[in-house]
Every structure is written in structure tokens, then in C-alpha cells.
Design a protein around this nucleic acid. Structure first.
Lengths: 336, 336
DNA sequence: CTGAAAGCGCTTACAG
DNA sequence: CTGAAAGCGCTTACAG
């Protein structure tokens, strides 16, 4: 037996009222519209018994909105993004909004595709960790006056709300910690994408070195190609560590680089110990469980999510042209 | 300057044709409908120049579908689910479908809420890792003839497609491996939810013990309350290990229990070594990087995703009442 | 070869 | 206090 979803018309017929009346009741405008309590309770009873759920597609078409917020990230299975997604979903849910998320895999064109899809589905607002080269796509959202908040990566060309981390200071503190441990040959492993959020990490590293009278050494810097297969990264890093035996500390610019790096160290049997320090980016169980435990720069997921959601709802509420805001939060260095 | 999205009407007016004609062209029915090539190219030109994207909400309302598949899991930030989500998203994308995913957090009512939301948005098919007590909600989808595939957890009360893992054999192999290593006091750490996919893991453990003439010992079995805070689980497991010094092997029934267990072992300074073996569930970097490396039962994410997506598209294609299928895949024991 | 019109299920300004 | 009707942007059976 196949049940077909009921429509407002079915309910109206059954209750012997117009669909207008049913619509008012569904939307809590019954008292405002002076519907008699008798009618209200009769309709509500029928709705409850028959399990009617209004068709949101029809509603979206009519209203031009959807109560949906899109979250576009590079890879939702990255723990940083998965954590943010989960927190944002929870916070949005409390205010009656759904989050719909998807990964761009950093593929060119995927962001444009997703944004077009979401636009055509009347998505109300956008939370985006933008890849390089997506400026035009995001601009098109701004032109349509859609609420947008960028996070993680900033696009300087755009005048748009942003929530991020002070990566410069985070790297700076990490290197200062190494110096405190009397490290002399401090390496950095980063990724070869020239976005501000990554270059800031390098800049903080470099500034801390010079501030502490250490000469930056290009031999101790490696930039891993983005999207390089994990095995290749591990091999590359193993070579990097072996070529530089004097290295006594290494700062990893991202979570997955730290993991690949630790695997490489394990392969070449180089221990993390009193002669060799490591600081990872983005904390996780894997660092807590490592022997020895690995220190890490922790991004405050909850604060980031809060700021993002607040900016989104501010814009959703105001309806007018917004002044854009840049929120920069501090990271936390977890020492182990 | 605010741009409003164009409608099919705008394009029709600009091209001096009817909206019918534009619609046919958009949907690739131009030749079938004998639209003149002159008209086709004129309309296509305008569409390209003006960047028209058809309103999918209107289309959904009219067609009763959406080209969207819902994926409902307990927690999308769990690596198993995140991995499945990513693979399914990719496979669905190739066939022109979008995945929209969300977490139930195992909260009662959340599944019902999500299913109602998706129904009201004309979602075409459902992939669900069901929580206990969601039978009625899933049944309602079957009544509406919606394609549904369950995975991870099975609901015996329902006659529905399912893709899962042979957890009995997986546990059985794990314990057999312990026996091969001459372990005598083999413990199991599991979770107190009485769903088949969890109880099978226990059953395989128990059967392997008795098949190898080892007496099951209730002292060596612990069931962690579901949703218990991580700290409490760690403390509980630390106590469990300390109370049972004779224990020489432990099988963890889930990924997060293994992580909490390893943290507990670390806290009480009990080493994983030639006198104490560990096998975890669901492989990950954290086990590869642990010292020593931890063996794990690996669920074949790619096979699972393939089977799920195939079952979904089979149903989407057939439109008729389906015979339901149970696909049980083998897990793989990764020894380290 | 092309178009006018109905209808998908809602919301809301307007009328009474 | 309640309802008829227009309209959101599409698709498609029907007519010519």
C-alpha cells in the first residue's frame, strides 16, 4: 500500500474550511487572523491524526527562501571541517535552520557548480572555506545580497565577512616554544598553496626565528604539493628528515602534514625525544596517543562556529546591506 | 547592485519564443520536439550570456523529485561515516545526484524530524545508518515507495535493503589471531547497545573463544554505556584493565572505544607488547602511528559505498516494487 | 515547428 | 471570522 503525502487541500477539504485558513493555522497566524478556536482545534486535530507535513518545496517556491544554510568546505572528512560542521549544524538547528554541506575536493569548478546548485534551490546563506580562484563565484552571491561568511581561508580581493585564526601568532608561539627548549635548527613543513592562511603560518615561523637571532635556513623548509598522494608525501618527508640530521625541531603547518610527517619519522626510526621536538597543527587523538605525546596548535572550533553562526544570523535578520566584519581568533598552543 | 536570478520567462522574452520552447531546449528535448536549430542556438546563446540556471525548486514542485539523496548517520564526524559520505557523494555526483547528509546524534526524534524534512523537500532516496527505534520512520518511507538502503546497522523488523559487514566473522578472526599468539585471557570492550551489528561482534568473540577451548569470562567483558562522556569511558577502562592484570589481549568493538582504551592504557602505563595484544575496529592513522602499531579490523569503505549506491540506483531506475537485498561484505583484519 | 494553458502546493493581499 | 484568487517558476499534454 502506497501512501501519498497529503496536501493542504486535503486537510482543508476534510476540515471543511479553505486552504487559506489551514495555511494560517499551520503558520501560527491563527490568532492574528482571528480564526475561531473551534476551527483551529478541528484543523489541528486532523493534521495530527493524518500526519500532515507541509510541502517545503512549494513553500520555498512561493517565499523565495528555504531555511537552509550551505556549508562548503574542501573535504568534510577532514576532522577540522567535520568538527565545525557538527557544531554549526547543532547551532543552526536550534534556530530552525538546516545545514547542507558538501566538499569541493579542491577541484576547480566544483565550487561554482555547488553555488549554482544551491542558488537554484533557494539556499538562504552560505558558509564557505574558499579555495583559490573562487572569488567570482562568491562575488555572485554578494551581488544577490545573500548572507555569506568565509572561514579558514580568506580572500583578500573580496569585501566579505570572515572568521579566522591568527595563524601568524600561532606559528610564532610554536617556534618560541622550540627556542625555549634550546632548539637551534627548527624546520617547517608546509603546503605549497599561497593563500594568506598558509603563508601567515610561514611568516610567523620566520619572524620568530629572526626575533630569536636564528638564521632562517631554506634547507629546513619544505613545501609539499597540494593534493599529492599521501604515500608520496611520506616518502618526501622521510627524505627531508634524513637529509637534515642537524634538524632538532619541526613545525607542521597542517594536521594531515603532521600525520604524514610522524609516519615518515617512524619509518626512518627517528624518535621524537629530548633532542627532537614536534608541534602539529589542529589537535586530535592521534597526537594525544602518540609516544611521546605531540604538542599541537589547537584551533578553537567552538568559538569559530559561534562567530560564524552569529554573523550569518545577523545578516539573515538585517536584510539590509551589511558592513562586513573580520573576526580573528587566537589559537591555543597545547604543550605535551 | 543587486542581481535577481533570471527565470525561464526572461529568457523566453529575450529570445522571442515561448517558455515552452525554452524549457524543451534546457532539458535537451529540442531535437525530439523538432525545435529549429536557429531557435536552439539563439536561446542557448542567451542562456550562456546571461548565466541562467533553472530554478530547481520550481522544477521539484512540478516533477515531484529533486535529484537529491539523503544520507542519515549518527555522527558525520566519525571517520567511518565521513569516509562513506565522501565516497557516496563522489559516486552520486557522477550520476547527477547530490547527497545531503546529516547527523542524528542518536537523539530520539531526530531521525523522524530529518525524514519528515527530507520528505517535504522531495528527496528522492534515503541511505540510513539507523538508530534503534526508528523502524516506524523508515517504514513510512517504504510506504511511500521511496528507495531506501540501510547500512552499518540492520533493523530485523524491516524488509528493506541493507549493506553491512560480517561482524561475526571479523570478531572471530580477531580472536583467532589472539589465540595464535597464545593469548589465554582475551577481553572484549564493547558498547551497551543491543543492535545486531554490535551483538554480532560479541557473538563472534564468544564463539571463537569456545571453539578454541577457552572459557568465556564475564570479568573480561565490559559494555560501555552509549553516549557516555569520553573521560568517563577512559576512567572506566583504566579501572577495567587494572582490575584484570591477567588479561593478555583485548578486542575493541568500535573505533572510538579503541581510542579511549589506548588512552586508558597509556594513563596506567600498561604497554601493548609481546605480553599484551590489542585489536581495534575501523582502521585509521591513529592506530598506524601508535607505538607499537595496533592491528585493526578494517571495513571496506569503498565496497560498502559501491553496494549502497548500486542498490539506490537500481531502485531509482526500476520505479516498481523492489525485492529487497541483504549484502554482507567481509571485513579485513589488518595485522601489524 | 511553436505556444497557450493547466497545475505542482503553497502564501498572502484583498474582499466581504 | 473566512474564502477566492493570483502567483512563485517550472513541465507537459494538447492544439494548431
Amino acid at each position: 500500500m502506497s501512501t501519498k503525502a497529503l496536501s493542504i487541500k486535503d486537510i482543508a477539504k476534510k476540515a471543511n474550511v479553505s486552504i487559506t485558513t489551514v495555511s494560517f493555522i499551520i503558520n501560527g497566524k491563527a490568532v492574528e487572523k482571528n480564526i475561531s478556536t473551534a476551527v483551529i482545534s478541528r484543523v489541528e486535530q486532523i493534521i495530527k491524526e493524518d500526519g500532515f507535513t507541509p510541502n517545503q518545496v512549494a513553500r520555498s517556491l512561493r517565499m523565495g527562501n528555504s531555511n537552509i544554510i550551505a556549508l562548503i568546505v574542501e573535504d568534510i572528512s577532514n576532522p577540522f571541517f567535520a568538527g565545525i560542521a557538527r557544531l554549526i549544524e547543532e547551532k543552526a538547528h536550534k534556530r530552525g535552520y538546516k545545514i547542507i554541506y558538501s566538499s569541493t575536493e579542491n577541484e576547480p569548478g566544483r565550487t561554482k557548480e555547488l553555488i549554482n546548485l544551491y542558488k537554484s534551490r533557494q539556499v538562504d546563506a552560505y558558509i564557505i572555506a574558499p579555495a583559490e580562484g573562487t572569488e567570482a563565484d562568491i562575488e555572485s552571491l554578494l551581488l544577490e545580497q545573500k548572507p555569506v561568511v568565509l572561514f579558514d581561508r580568506y580572500l583578500p580581493a573580496l569585501n566579505v565577512n570572515y572568521v579566522g585564526i591568527d595563524h601568524f601568532s600561532a606559528s610564532y608561539s610554536a617556534v618560541s616554544q622550540f627556542v625555549k627548549e634550546k632548539r637551534q635548527n627548527i624546520a617547517m613543513v608546509t603546503v605549497n598553496v599561497e593563500v594568506q592562511q598558509i603563508t601567515n603560518r610561514y611568516d610567523g615561523y620566520r619572524k620568530a626565528l629572526t626575533d630569536h637571532d636564528l638564521e632562517p635556513n631554506d634547507q629546513l623548509l619544505v613545501k609539499i604539493p597540494f593534493n599529492q598522494p599521501k604515500e608520496d608525501t611520506i616518502a618526501q618527508l622521510a627524505g627531508f628528515f634524513e637529509r637534515n640530521p642537524e634538524m632538532d625541531a619541526v613545525l607542521f603547518a597542517t594536521n594531515y602534514l603532521a600525520i604524514s610527517g610522524l609516519i615518515a619519522l617512524k619509518q626512518i626510526k627517528k624518535m621524537v625525544d629530548k633532542d627532537f621536538s614536534v608541534i602539529a597543527y589542529d589537535d586530535g587523538d592521534v597526537f594525544k596517543l602518540h609516544s611521546p605525546e605531540i604538542s599541537a596548535v589547537e584551533q578553537p572550533l567552538n568559538d569559530i562556529s559561534d562567530q560564524i553562526i552569529n554573523l550569518i544570523f545577523e545578516q539573515l535578520a538585517s536584510k539590509t546591506v551589511q558592513t562586513t566584519q573580520q573576526v580573528i581568533l587566537p589559537a591555543k598552543l597545547i604543550l605535551r
